[in-house]
Design a protein around this nucleic acid. Sequence first.
RNA 1: GGCCCCGUGGCAGAGUGGUUAUGCAGAGGACUGCAAAUCCUUGUACAUCGGUUCGAUUCCGGUCGGGGCCUCCA
Length: 463
Amino acid sequence: MDPQPELKITNTLTRAKEAFRPIDPSHVRMYVCGPTVYDFAHVGNARPVVVFDVLVRLLRRLYPRVTYVRNITDVEDKINARAKENGEPIEALTARTAAQYQADMDALGAERPDVQPRATHHIAQMITLIERLIAKGHAYAADGHVLFAVPSMPDYGGLSRRDRDDMIAGARVEVAPYKQDPADFVLWKPSSDDIPGWDSPWGRGRPGWHIECSAMSWEHLGETFDIHGGGLDLIFPHHENEIAQSRCAFGTHTMANYWMHNGFVTVEGEKMSKSLGNFYTVHDVLKEWPGEAIRLLLLSSHYRAPLDFTSAGLKEAKAQLDRLYQALRNAADVAVEPEAPAGDELMAALLDDLNVPLAVARLHEAVGRLNKATDPAERSAAKSALLGGGALLGLLQADPEAWFQGGGDDDLDPAEIERLIQARVDARKGRDFAEADRIRDALKANGVELEDGPQGTTWKRAG
RNA sequence: GGCCCCGUGGCAGAGUGGUUAUGCAGAGGACUGCAAAUCCUUGUACAUCGGUUCGAUUCCGGUCGGGGCCUCCA
């Protein structure tokens, strides 16, 4: 038996692939930046959810306990603006959007994080952090605001490898007059009466963007933890500033040991943008495609590489899943042990910085073995590899019959389909192939395709 | 201007200093009443120019092309 190879992940802090060594091997702790709840999640929002879902599944196989925290940002100026626009209370907007987010991510097969803290439930912790930062000389109050004093942290910028002076030179935003240094960023800002605010030592106000993640990761994972994830675009300023806040508040050398960032999603070759009107929301795509196909498409390139989300890609993802489920359907009678292992090769692919595309290729190879093999033990092993590997990737856990026959609410009902199939079987027995083909064509016209196999005729809804 | 990433066969997409990725699509064949599903066969790809090397798609440098970030966007 080979020893279990170790997990390697690319750490943005070092820009290198490193062996993963948890702070406490009996309890791995991970934080991923979650949504700001003011609108439907788009496919770009969904990518980190799916990517880190695979990582958590893998970590749970490797370590006895994993705590996965993904926040919900429910206080933010965009939320305020949208609520005003809609003429609805902020709580109504955030509650509805958060519920929709949950439903969409469930549909993508993402397991729910262990904790989904809300920013508004952690105002006290934020204030505590800010007070500590002020006490330690890393922050100052000015004009109703509290700002983080970037020059007070000598090694600020380590994650994004940004020189402070360059940042200022390239800054696109006017420097506010209350800033002592152009690079300083807001921890707390005053709220007017018509927007959410909380009492604080600096008057009624609301938190800046970055402080919530420092507060929530502290509350649920401690001063330092193992992995912090999110989209590439969050490296600067968000994650850089989180690091500054947490490390300066706690006097620690590190906030999280490993920082992982997923690449951007484009749509039909273009960046999603409101002006182009090419936002694909998960909610909309789910109307036409199975969540599992969306998931597979989001996993089809390596997590750090860019991903082009296209309808052709959805079609191919669906076709791949059809092939995989077809094999499972044909092997319905093959017994497998529960909790099947994933297979060494698939496991090795994931351990190598989450090489999901290679892992999916292993799945296809397992399908080939399953389809080809006649030996029962071989078939059972191949099916186990397929289901076990699928479980690790969050794929192939549906019932194959449901995969092929589900959906299509306004089409023929299954009983009618079965009746027609029987009629066709009778016609074929009488060698009346004209009638048999007529029935098959009629069903096909209604989106139902037949397959004559050794065990009789099966059907599926055409995708 | 600063920091970072990418350029693989029709498409998607891994990987490697010298040997088949994988899938989709296409072509031929087997099976089938005909199909479908499945199986078999098939496609000599690595932007470009130099360098290192016995040998580079893989390492180094230049060029061209594309993309991201640079204060609140996953």
